[in-house]
Computed example of a mutant assay.
Amino acid sequence: MEITVYLAGEIHSNWRNELKEKAKSLQLPLHFTGPMENHDRSDMIGEEILGKQPDAIFRDEAASSINNLRTQLLMQKSDLVIALFGEKYKQWNTAMDASAAAALGKPLILIRPKELHHPLKELSSKANVTVETVNQALKVLSYIFETE
């Protein structure tokens, strides 16, 4: 049995590759998907498809509609969502994706540092599991496949 995991969260650090490499080394039957990790492509996809937009607001709206479609489709096809809240970047997209996963009834693992416990307490209560590190999330994934 292979599980499809949607990896929501910031796209500026290497956390996805770290998780994927460790899952591969453990030979876990996982398939990963997630948002467009090329930030410039994500920001410019609206103009690439729809043509030059009159200003930055229209450019953002055009890109957002396409990125939201991508997220909705890939998340709906996933079996599980992992949402990482880092310490450095604004987390609006992560919060939106984690909330969407909860609303869809998708199993959800939140990764968030201890310092973000209070601002994320309601979202943590909607998640199936809340952990503080990528390694802890990987241990949860690994446990799913244990038989004894």
Rank of each mutant, 00 (worst) to 15 (best):
A98P: 06
G51C: 08
T71K: 10
T133L: 11
K126V: 01
L74C: 06
I66D: 10
T147W: 07
Q53R: 14
S99R: 08
G46V: 03
P35T: 10
T94I: 09
W92I: 01
E148W: 03
M44G: 09
P35M: 06
E61M: 13
A103V: 10
L19P: 02
E87P: 04
S142G: 03
E146I: 07
L116A: 06
M75E: 03
R59Q: 13
T4I: 04
L116T: 02
G46H: 11
I3Q: 07
K22S: 06
N128P: 04
A103P: 02
D40R: 05
V140A: 01
L104V: 04
A127R: 04
I109Q: 01
A102W: 05
E61T: 04
T4R: 09
G86E: 11
A103H: 10
E2Y: 11
V5M: 08
K88G: 00
L26I: 04
H12R: 08
T147N: 10
E10C: 14
A98W: 06
E146A: 02
G34Y: 10
I66M: 13
L80Y: 00
I82P: 00
A101I: 08
Q136E: 14
S25W: 09
G105T: 09
E2C: 01
A62C: 09
E132P: 01
A56V: 04
I144Q: 04
H39G: 02
F32C: 05
